[in-house]
Design a binder for these strands. Structure first.
Length: 105
DNA sequence: CATTTGACTTGTG
DNA sequence: CCACAAGCCAAAT
């Protein structure tokens, strides 16, 4: 049984520890798909309903949520991250501090 | 099949 | 730090 890029991305995202986050480019790189940052976004957008994938732990390289501020998706992601101990400051957080270090996984 | 779009990244000014 | 451009790839139109 071979793994599709989509499934690999799901696995990577699912492995992000609580209280940590990862960027799209990082996810793509870990999945063995360098340069597929946007593809990761497409996959997360097309997530099957009921998936337990912690997509909220995936953010952009700026250390901010990729959704527009005020949208329900933005608010939901922010709330979940805060619930995991991530502190938001002015709509973003310390990426260097919360960024997932795959060596720990 | 060509063009546009998008939950992106990195570099330059 | 902000604005703009180029690079990147897949899916939608």
């Amino acid at each position: 049984m071979e793994s599709n890029a989509k499934e690999r991305i799901w696995q990577i995202v699912h492995q992000i520890p609580k209280g940590n986050v990862a960027s799209y480019g990082q996810i793509a790189n870990l999945a063995g798909l360098p340069g597929y940052a946007r593809y990761v976004g497409h996959v997360l957008k097309n997530l099957p309903a009921g998936s337990k994938l912690p997509w909220h732990r995936v953010v952009n390289s700026k250390g901010a949520i990729s959704f527009a501020v005020g949208t329900s998706e933005y608010l939901r992601q922010k709330a979940r991250l805060e619930q995991e101990g991530i502190v938001f400051i002015d709509g973003r957080f310390s990426m260097a501090r919360y960024r997932w270090n795959q060596d720990e996984a």
